[in-house]
Amino acid sequence: MKRTLIAALMVSAFWPLAADAHKRWLLPTDFSLSDAEQVSIDLTASNNLFYVDKGMPPVGISIIDPQGVTHEPINPVKRKRRSVFDVDIEQPGTYRILQGGVPMYFVSYKVPGEEQPQRGRGALEELKAGLPDNAQEISFAESVSLVETYVTLGAPSKNFGSSKKGIELTGGDHPNMLYADEPSRFEFSLNGKPAKGLTLEVTPDGTRYRDSLGTVSYTLDAKGGAEVEWSTPGRYLLEVATEQKMPEGSEIAKRYYSYFVTVEVLKP
């Protein structure tokens, strides 16, 4: 438990809030396998896709196998520009590889005599307990951020997220069965309900070699879904993010949610 908390703290210490403009992504060496194998996965934040730039601490990572059993990453390494870990893909079906998805809390407050507001992050109860008696203008924020990807051995199986916390991919086409000449549907939920009205941003690989990012935006429909048209075969990053200002007087003043998934689109 303590370890998980420290892990979460380290993650959040690096990537605090939605204001961070970097894209975060997990990129596997393979998305689709025909024989059991170990797959290496890059974990990085960058502006360009998919070029490693800032290695993120390889903590808070879960590998969920086709039976729903959670595994630890193998050989996690943090380097300056990239972090990487391995995953054994041994069972037929779809593995979900993720980082985050756990609510994190932030506090800011002022104390008399100090110009700058004080800040803290961690579990909500700990933050509350750590407040000085003379703290004023106390404001809490919550953040749930999930970065994930999918890898399939043999025939694909259903392995979507179901924590009902933050933004999750919950339905639509299988993320390992995408073709450049067919639109693909993705459905998202926010805290377990359809993520209606949020914006899905889809960016193809290779931003370094074109003048524009090439991001296409979709507004999620009543089911929290969108039909994505692919411009070319290749790897894509899909992002959904939102922030909610809570009503005056709420204990949590603001909630931030973000979601990133890396997928591969095949040439027909």
Binding site: S32, L33, S34, D35, G154, A155
Partner: peptide
Amino acid sequence: EQEKWWRDLRSWWRRGGAY
């Protein structure tokens, strides 16, 4: 030949070869 490379027949593999 080797199972590892079956998926490189990528249309066949994803259209049903995997099944």
